[in-house]
Write a protein that binds this DNA or RNA. Sequence first.
DNA 1: ATCAAGTAGTGCGGTATCGAACTAAAAGGA
DNA 2: TCCTTTTAGTTCGATACCGCACTACTTGAT
Lengths: 161, 161
Amino acid sequence: MPETPPATAPDPRLTFGIFNEIGIIAQLSRTMFEAHLPKGAGLPHFSLVNHLVRVRDGQTPLTLARAFQVPKTTMTHTVSGAVARGWVDLRPNPDDGRSKTVWLTDAGRAFREAAIASLAPDMTQVGAALDAATQAELLEKLTQLRVFLDAYRDPPKGSSA
Amino acid sequence: MPETPPATAPDPRLTFGIFNEIGIIAQLSRTMFEAHLPKGAGLPHFSLVNHLVRVRDGQTPLTLARAFQVPKTTMTHTVSGAVARGWVDLRPNPDDGRSKTVWLTDAGRAFREAAIASLAPDMTQVGAALDAATQAELLEKLTQLRVFLDAYRDPPKGSSA
DNA sequence: ATCAAGTAGTGCGGTATCGAACTAAAAGGA
DNA sequence: TCCTTTTAGTTCGATACCGCACTACTTGAT
């Protein structure tokens, strides 16, 4: 017996429209972001450095790949780009000879600071279009959706049986 | 006297978080979509064909580029891929010697039908996670955000003075 | 008619993303 | 100890995205 009746099933086209808008916004926001980054730098580089600052550095590439929901090959590419630009360093993992660890450099931290400062006005502009309450609600629903997609594509190991 | 008090300015980090989630969802959903498309076919190809069916074919590449919010070079690339796969045809534009027009083929229509049928189960699954009302609200706010970003990056010509 | 300015599309180079296949090292069992 | 399996990371090839610069054509002014 279903104790939560499925509060009206959405039209697939509605769902489709959501993904459509999300795709477009992702594209537009990416372009907006990259316009404020140093030439040749991509959003992935900023995201990587930002993550290392906010969480902690010294993580392995694979851990980072999981955090960003990208294949490890993509993370290899992103990390090597960040290394080439001097924003992170790679060191061997003392606990595992196959693995490496990713460390921030001073240049990496400076890059992040500059990017955030440069981005702030755009964020503020968006804030003028959607007030805090709306944004909070939006974020909440987006998070719901993301969590679902995570679980949907990558079934929890050992959930059944 | 402002008749609409700016209902509390959002923390830039909130806005940042929204774009972050959107980026991740775009990635996940793209992967989900492409898993159901014929091998070698990308989401852009489906989007293009789908747009031509839903709106109308015979549009110029530039019109399509604007509709998808991508640079015209990207649309050239996407269209040429769709041509190579036999889903659309290119014909000269009778009204403008510089321009071309993009037309659906039967194979293109069949490709779209198959893709939609193959995608439907996924859309339904998402529907089980977020009910219709939530999705409708989400779509509404996303649309608001997209419309703003459109206008923000590409200021309307002739708005002031 | 002529020429300057603007527009449609393409070519090129660089970055991003990702699956398949590979190397090297760790883990686990016989 | 030896060998099989698993795991971390890289390499390779393919598609995607986008800015810059170029060609070809149109438009508008003289």
